[in-house]
């Protein structure tokens, strides 16, 4: 097991270099560069050329990549071209807000989707199953920005129960920590609800399908034939197996949790990673884009690894790193 882990972690290095090389070239293929943002009638093209040269963007892409790589090996992820701040700080600054938002939403989604999916599979074709199905399709069809605005209109404008946008109430700046924490919780409710409602649908369907498939397996029939109580059949025999695909999804959604949710963050004015990333792309802010790409790539790889490990834990038939006997 340790050997397997070590091997997987070692594979990270060539993988990350490959990813960085491809992404670096792809983002430089996109037309334009960071100085495009400065286009107004008063700025002369030679000024833009001078600033490009200051940024080192006048050199061939391969040279730029080489410089970037050398800096990375020295632990320097570069400087945001527009704010002049280290990229790492910009990313780390956004991370807590994003983790809080997407983390809460994902946990809530899994907590709700698994029982809903299992119940609708067990009570297949019941009114419960049908209403969950209806709700799931409605959720899949609902655009998140629309739902966000509707929730805001109802709960912030009409009822005035919750704050509409942002993460903090600035007037509470000097209040004790628990009041500020409560304030952040209040601000979290609408965005988390929106994200959960929209992503709940797909996962519930997934869990339902997985559970249905298992319930049709021979060993379930055997378990029932043995006269085991239905509770044991469902929770001990079926659920454990039906969780395997969900574990994969969980592992794969890890990068999303860190990557943030652009639309939700934009609508709710939430200071997260999603906004940072999309803005970086529009600005062609190369060091920042690369920082975010490498960060996400790392998380995707770790997420996959974690999913594999969870697999082995959930499903004893899977033995990692051991040769088949």
């Amino acid at each position: 097991m340790t050997k397997y882990l070590f091997k997987r972690l070692l594979q990270l290095i060539p993988l990350l270099i490959g990813i960085s090389l491809i992404s670096f070239f792809v983002i430089h293929l996109a037309p334009g560069d960071p100085t495009n943002l400065f286009t107004t009638p008063n700025v002369k093209p030679e000024e833009l050329a001078r600033i490009r040269a200051n940024f080192g963007l006048d050199k061939p892409v391969i040279i730029q990549y080489f410089y970037w790589l050398v800096n990375i090996l020295k632990g320097n992820f570069g400087t945001d071209l527009l704010t002049g701040r280290p990229v790492v700080i910009e990313i780390l600054e956004r991370l807590p807000a994003t983790l809080l938002l997407t983390g809460s939403a994902y946990i809530l989604t899994f907590l709700l989707a698994i029982p809903l999916g299992v119940l609708s599979a067990v009570k297949k074709n019941s009114w419960f199953d049908k209403s969950v199905t209806l709700f799931s399709f409605a959720g899949m069809a609902t655009p998140s920005f629309w739902l966000a605005l509707i929730l805001m209109l109802v709960f912030a404008v009409k009822l005035d129960w919750l704050p509409a946008v942002g993460m903090y109430t600035f007037t509470l700046k000097d209040s004790p920590w628990f009041i500020r924490a409560w304030d952040v919780c209040l601000h979290l409710i609408l965005p988390v609800t929106t994200m959960t409602l929209v992503s709940l649908a797909g996962l519930t369907r997934y869990q339902r399908a997985a559970m249905l498939e298992i319930l049709n397996k021979d060993y379930i029939r055997t378990a029932r034939a043995k006269g085991l109580p239905e509770r044991v059949v469902i929770f001990k025999h079926a659920l454990r197996n039906a969780l395997i695909p969900i574990v994969t999804i969980f592992g794969l959604s890890l990068p999303d949790i860190f990557g943030g949710a652009f639309i939700i963050e934009t609508v709710f004015g939430w200071p997260g990673m999603g906004r940072l990333g999309v803005q970086a792309v529009f600005q062609r802010n190369y060091p920042l884009i690369m920082g975010i790409v490498m960060f996400s790539a790392f998380l995707i790889i770790i997420g996959n690894l974690l999913a594999d490990l969870l697999y082995a834990w959930v499903d004893p038939r899977i033995r990692l790193g051991e040769k088949k006997q």
Binding site: M152, A156, V157, A164, V165, G166, T266, V267, G269
Partner: peptide, 18 residues
């Protein structure tokens, strides 16, 4: 100065008195 990138959300925040 709040930072609300979405125009519609900003309008709702205005209506909500924020």
């Amino acid at each position: 100065y709040k930072i609300i990138p979405d125009e519609n959300a900003a309008l709702l925040a205005f209506e909500a008195g924020e």
